[in-house]
Design a protein around this nucleic acid. Structure first.
Length: 327
DNA sequence: CCAATTTGACCATT
DNA sequence: AATGGTCAAATTGG
């Protein structure tokens, strides 16, 4: 069920994307058609699942969507918060969804809302998301104030080895239209501070830290990387917790700080990536190199069944940049 | 001018 | 030595 909701949300997002890029796509009937088809397909798929679910729920009142029962309990703890968040920031369509579906885990997943104290993992079906979080969140072994490069006198800033601690991994579908290269939106504003080719991976990994790191010493970071086997999905690894949301300049909702201390990095909707987010004042790719590479791969996957190696970016965006600031 | 991104270099860890 | 995470100069757009 939840993956169905996730699917519907995905459809909503696609529709939003289409609306945003309508001006760009207006003279591109081919792409416009593709976009519409995709949206239709997603919703049709969702509808099918819904009708199937109507049958299956009578037999299986609690589908085994989660690995462990505690996840279910945890989900129920989150829901009121999620509802508050949804009420404050989601589209009316999403609200409708919320009211229609008792289990709203999917929304939380689809928007990257994770809590680090989730012990096990969460897996969803096709079109859904995969969330995985390691247990303890003593992640902040690093000291953001130590920004000197070779100046580390006694306390050297660890540059690696934070791997397991407080790390939350999310998989989110990439946008199929518009800025397909932008990382999944999560409502926070991120500043890119690095990008690396990862051995054995087709796509580079991008490193982001919270935009408010300097102002509020917000230690939140994330890594975004396209999946090798599914270029339409991003794997996002969150590290650290947002502390910036206590201020008024920070994003709106506070999920992470719960009574008891164990908090998770929170995320929310709206675009936070480059060029297009309401929250992100980013100026978009200046060099376009980051964009070129993945989009070319995506274009290959889409139009050439993934075997070619030529740059076919124009197939997706002939003539213009896929950003909001055309012209 | 400021803020954001790119990118090569640096450096810690394995 | 290889790999991955971070820094910071250069660059660019608002």
């Amino acid at each position: 069920m939840d993956d169905t909701v996730s699917l519907i949300l995905h459809g909503c997002k696609l529709a939003e994307e289409l609306a945003l890029n309508l001006a760009n796509l207006a003279n591109q009937p081919e792409n416009l058609s593709k976009s519409c088809e995709e949206i239709i397909r997603v919703f049709a798929d969702a509808k099918e699942r819904l009708s199937f679910h109507q049958l299956s729920t009578t037999l299986y009142p609690h589908p085994m969507l989660f690995r462990e029962p505690q996840d279910l309990q945890h989900q129920q703890n989150i829901d009121p918060i999620l509802q508050e968040w949804l009420g404050s920031s989601c589209t009316s369509a999403m609200e409708t969804l919320l009211h229609q579906t008792p289990g709203v885990m999917a929304e939380r997943s689809a928007l990257g809302l994770i809590e680090s104290k989730v012990g096990g993992g969460l897996q969803m079906g096709s079109g859904g998301l995969f969330i995985e979080s390691s247990s303890r969140s003593d992640a902040q072994a690093m000291d953001p104030s130590d920004s000197g490069r070779g100046s580390s006198s006694s306390s050297k800033r660890p540059r690696k080895r934070n791997d397991d601690a407080g790390k939350r991994t999310v998989r989110v579908p990439a946008q199929l239209f518009g800025n397909t290269e932008i990382p999944p939106e999560d409502g926070f504003t991120w500043r890119k501070y690095g990008q690396k080719e990862i051995l054995g991976s087709k796509f580079p990994r991008a490193y982001y830290r919270c935009t408010h790191q300097n102002l509020y010493h917000c230690p939140a970071k994330k890594q975004v990387q396209r999946l090798d086997d599914d270029p339409f999905q991003f794997e996002v690894v969150y590290r650290g917790e947002h502390t910036c949301h206590m201020s008024d300049t920070a994003p709106w909702v506070d999920f992470s700080l719960g009574p008891g201390g164990s908090a998770g990095s929170s995320s929310s909707s709206m675009a936070a990536g480059s060029s297009g987010g309401a929250a992100g004042p980013s100026t978009g790719g200046r060099y376009g190199k980051e964009a070129d590479y993945p989009i070319a791969e995506l274009a290959d996957a889409m139009f050439n069944s993934g075997s070619s190696s030529t740059n076919s970016m124009e197939l997706i965006f002939p003539g213009d940049q896929p950003s909001d600031k055309n012209n």
